[in-house]
Design a protein around this nucleic acid. Structure first.
Length: 615
RNA sequence: GGCUCCGUAGCUCAAUUGGAUAGAGUACCUGACUACGGAUCAGGCGGUUGAAGGUUCGAAUCCUUCCGGGGUCACCA
């Protein structure tokens, strides 16, 4: 069956050729869905043809409308408003389309295209638990992976775990000093939270030490010597913190010594490092599991941080990089406005960018993917521009397939999340909270009392996570978003549970219907407006999926799922299904309901949201 | 300061990529089925799309300038 939009485009192109001898590519003919205040399904905008036609827009619109009406069987009639032709597609077309797809579980899914794509997301540090920022990252990454899979790619989900460096050493040191051999089990603490607690403890002790130093003779001397003109003491010491950590701090020295010991392969340091990281991984696994996500491969920074030096050598040979007087290596990207970039330290050790060069190359060797998507917050836009430019200059074969899926940070109503001020929203706490809200709500409603505890718990988890996930994924990735915990537990209105409820209603109807298999749906005449709205939404889905994949933007799917659910709720309210006037109407509406349920389920799956059949 | 992203209803977000009278949810007010699930539906209130110019049949969308906010400009990651 021909796609009606493409058909209209082709025929308009044909009409313009016949009527005005104008070449106009079919693909560029503007066809929009008709605004609801006018009669029609699709609208052709005729302004682009005015120059060639040398006629007034309404006249052109009339002529094109007449051409389509008599040359396209599916076009029943039309009307003209200014330069717009509103076209009415006949009911048979919509009916046939609906019956074709009604039982297709994942209408819109594309066949495999033979290409592979890697999606990197989450990528946590191992010194503290996951928080709200990670959740946005993970939802985006997971959803993007599902979307790429749905349009035909072979997708591999990966994360790089930042398991080394000074941060984890801080947690390690704090545990050694103040931990008294306690463990997650002995304190019945979720293990990643246990490790995070020691990171916080380190920061507290360090802060105390720093405060004391500030008022000491040594601290005051440094202040007097290094302060800028007119600089206040408070501002100076805030700025000086890193320098203090590296040059004066006792705790800083101990932490750095621990890092050096680790790098030298010191047995005790490595053993402690392993112990604490394993605690964190055990904790992450629980969180990932609750979020319903998983990965195909993990990369550990401790294993990859030395990669990249080979690429540096290659770059030097090719003349892309050069060695500075002090022995450090640099790339000059000033011609593309990216300034100069250090690639190696003067002592020959790697930098962040060096690692990323190396891991990109390594991933290509591991997977031979044509595309790699990095889901990383937009504060790293510059870093990725530089990284991609360097990989291009190194003529890496995948360089054209690199994409940084940058997303805006998540703010709270009170402002930015700050770990130092304790305003960071913990991922586990957040999930517990939404599920708790659902539970309270569900008890009032009392619709699940025939189920056992476990089944109920699963449903409430699904509903709670739907609320949380939809709240986040409905926002365009690029935008910085405000996360209001109060609103995120809403279960009414433009929410995940609202969409689930549409699905649940359909399941309930389908359960009640135990009719014969030979459907009368085909005999149905005269579509109701609400039915047509639903069919047109379903019809538009493949294009929306394509768009979501092209733009790496799950939010368009969230918007689609919401409007489909909304239209269904209205349809359900206005029209009786099982008690319809005729058998044909009943059967048609059952088919329509099934199609909507399938599309809702598929779309939500792409967003990482599960659909319960009751709630 | 340079570069970059953003600014839409009180609040949270849309707007078919330049199309018609800028739409949803929320909050507030009002209404709805002895009906297949009321986590629903309908109505009301709410806008100079940060400001001013420009481009054209048409601008929230493109260009210029300004205002406000974020990010970034490390031999940190």
């Amino acid at each position: 069956m021909a796609n009606i939009i493409q058909l209209i485009q082709e025929k308009v192109s044909e009409a313009v050729q016949a009527l005005y001898q104008m070449e106009f590519p079919a693909g560029q003919v503007p066809v929009n869905t008709t605004r609801k205040e006018f009669e029609g399904d699709y609208t052709v905008v005729v302004f682009p043809f005015t120059k060639a036609a040398r006629k007034a827009p309404p006249v052109i619109a009339q002529e094109i409308g007449e051409y389509l009406e008599s040359n396209v069987a599916e076009i029943e009639r039309f009307n003209v408003v200014k330069g717009f032709v509103n076209l009415v597609v006949n009911d048979d077309y919509w009916k046939n389309f609906l019956l074709d797809i009604a039982t297709v579980e994942e209408y819109g899914r594309q066949p495999a295209n033979g290409q592979r794509v890697l999606v990197e997301f989450s990528s946590p540090n191992t010194n503290k638990p996951l928080h709200l920022g990670h959740i946005r990252n993970i939802l985006l990454g997971w959803s993007t992976a599902q979307i790429m899979d749905a349009v035909g790619y072979d997708v591999k989900k990966i994360q790089i775990i930042n398991d080394r460096g000074i941060a984890i050493c801080k947690s390690m040191l704090a545990w050694k000093k103040y931990g008294k051999e306690t463990t997650p089990i002995s304190t019945t603490t979720k293990p990643d939270h246990f490790v995070g607690k020691f990171y916080v403890l380190f920061e507290q002790h360090f802060q105390e030490e720093y405060k004391a130093w500030q008022t000491s003779a040594a601290g005051q001397a440094v202040f007097q010597e290094h302060k800028k003109a007119e600089e206040e003491e408070q501002g100076f010491f805030k700025r000086y913190k890193n320098h203090y950590f590296n040059n004066y701090s006792e705790l800083g020295k101990e932490a750095r010594d621990l890092l050096l010991a680790w790098e030298a392969g010191d047995e005790q340091a490595v053993a402690l490092w392993k112990k604490m990281n394993n605690w964190v991984y055990a904790g992450f696994d629980i969180t990932y599991d609750k979020l319903g996500v998983n990965f195909d491969k993990l990369y550990f920074e401790s294993e990859t941080y030395l990669l990249g030096k080979k690429l540096v050598d290659q770059g030097l040979e090719k003349g892309i990089f050069y060695t500075c007087d002090d022995g450090s290596v640099e790339a000059d990207l000033t011609d593309v406005k990216l300034d100069k970039k250090k690639i190696l330290r003067s002592d020959g050790t790697s930098l962040y960018i060096t690692q990323d060069l190396g891991t990109a190359h390594q991933r290509y060797e591991d997977f031979e993917a044509q595309k790699m998507i990095y889901v990383v917050a937009d504060e790293q836009n510059h870093h990725f521009k530089v990284l991609f430019e360097l990989l291009k200059r190194l003529e890496e074969p995948y360089a054209d397939g690199l994409y940084h899926l940058a997303y805006g940070m998540v703010d709270l109503p009170s402002g930015k999340m700050k770990s130092r001020e304790g305003t960071v929203v913990d991922a586990d706490d957040l999930m517990t909270e939404v599920v708790g809200e659902v539970q309270a709500n569900s008890e009032e409603r009392d619709t699940l009392n025939d189920l056992d505890q476990e089944q109920r718990a699963e449903i409430m988890h699904q509903v709670g996570l739907a609320a949380l996930k939809f709240f986040i994924t409905k926002v365009h990735p690029k935008k910085r978003m405000t996360f209001d915990p109060k609103e995120s537990v809403d279960l009414q209105g433009q929410t995940g549970p609202y969409i689930q409820n549409a699905y649940v209603r359909i399941q309930s109807v389908l359960r009640k219907w135990e009719g014969a298999a030979n459907s009368q749906a085909n005999a149905y005449q005269q579509l109701e407006k609400e039915e047509k709205d639903l069919i047109q939404l379903l019809f538009g889905f493949p294009a929306i999926l394509q768009e979501a994949a092209k733009d790496y933007d799950p939010s368009t799917l969230a918007q689609y799922a919401y409007s489909l659910a909304k239209s269904y709720h209205k349809f359900y309210h206005d029209h009786s299904i099982l008690n319809a006037d005729t058998e044909a109407a009943r059967d048609f509406r059952l088919a329509l309901s099934e199609a909507v349920a399938n599309s809702l389920k598929f779309t939500m799956k792409l967003l990482g949201i599960e659909m319960p059949s009751r709630m």
